[in-house]
Design a protein around this nucleic acid. Structure first.
Lengths: 211, 211
DNA sequence: TAGAAAATAGCGGTAAACCACTATTTAATT
DNA sequence: AATTAAATAGTGGTTTACCGCTATTTTCTA
């Protein structure tokens, strides 16, 4: 019996590409394709796949949201995250939620197939590039366990406006806040995302699709 | 005789996806797939396709570089740019170089097919989302024609270090420059890329793959 | 309903970014 | 050889970002 694989990604190029790659694999069968989070949550009730290839950036729901919901209700589904971003704290977040693997979109065919098989068999899979990054990250943070970060509603709003090139004063005006409040949000963003300045904020935000 | 289509993209998922989408299209035949610029320039000599689907971010050469070279030597090849970034000045740059279309990677199947056919017939094609952006851009710049921008070697170096979260002083130390020089480069970056601050610099750089 | 987290606002201060200039020297190109 | 673009460096100034605090109110949640 082949592995039942569901794919959740909003880009036809990606889903078609994976289907094409798996076409010759006799032990994997693509049973469902979902282009957004709502469809995924709805569909997964009926047809419960063995492995779910989950894109980090579906249009309506975030990767972590979906992963948490699915793993809670259908813990037997093994989630293999599909992402083009190698930002490490995003990787850690998904793994801590219980995802079984993290696959970069620039992977080649054998890697993709291998990842699916590994995860199906109960193993973990990480794209090779991530192994090194995770190890480096562990050494950096050996002092104390880092908790993975979630931004608050306000922080996300502020971050979006920073990305839109607004100053703190402009953000304060737009959100009807004191300048001090915006500064505070900004600094907690710096701390939470572990970056040094505005450049780091924008970089992490864009690479993780936080906003 | 079907349209001879070549694809230049380093992601197997993408190339396989496009092949899959075009499998049922009797009037398009994928003749070649290239994973990098070198292979592309080498291969295009032999088999000259009607249409080239060109990714903006091949590992060894930039999109504009490749487009310029190909259009110079093989002007009959119609280039359809394939990109996930909708940064407008990148779009303008490629179109001014002579590319016949700009296709976003989140396009659906019919759009992709339509784009290829349109370009083959001698027309231009833009992903719908870009039309609106280009029009807005024109209104913004109606006063005077904006020349598309090319960053100098130094500017790119400085920009990369900005993205790496370094301050001007740190950049100056790293590159053995005066602080003033770095400030000047930074300001010309702001002007060239038409952004207001560091956030804009990082955003444009990441979205266009300038660095 | 008590405790925690989030959102709000403030103070005082330093460092960095941003801006408009001028000006010299060094490539690149015609 | 002449012109242009790039890279370099400067002056002098304003604005913004960054940092570490404290503190109150609101909202969430165990």
């Amino acid at each position: 019996m082949p592995i039942k694989l569901a794919i959740a990604d909003d880009h036809p190029i990606v889903t078609k590409g994976i289907c094409n790659i798996l076409r010759d694999a006799v032990n994997v069968e693509v049973t469902d394709i979902y282009a957004n989070g709502t469809a995924l949550l709805k569909g997964i009730k009926e047809s419960q796949p063995d492995v779910l290839l989950l894109d980090m950036h579906l249009p309506d729901m975030s990767g972590p949201e979906l992963a948490a919901s699915i793993l809670k209700n259908y813990p037997q589904v093994r989630i293999l995250v599909l992402s083009s971003s190698d930002v490490i704290f995003q990787v850690k977040k998904m793994l801590k939620l219980g995802c079984m693997g993290y696959l970069l979109k620039d992977s080649d065919e054998t890697t993709i197939l291998q990842a699916i098989e590994t995860v199906y068999k109960g193993g973990q899979f990480l794209s090779p590039a991530l192994n090194q990054l995770l190890i480096e990250d562990m050494f950096r943070n050996k002092k104390s366990e880092k908790k993975t970060t979630t931004l608050t509603r306000r922080e996300k709003e502020v971050l979006q406006l920073i990305i839109d090139e607004h100053t703190n004063q402009e953000i304060a005006d737009k959100l009807f806040l004191s300048l001090h409040t915006v500064e505070n949000h900004r600094i907690s963003l710096l701390h939470k995302l572990e970056v040094k300045n505005t450049a780091g904020l924008v970089k992490v935000a864009l690479q993780t699709g936080l906003v």
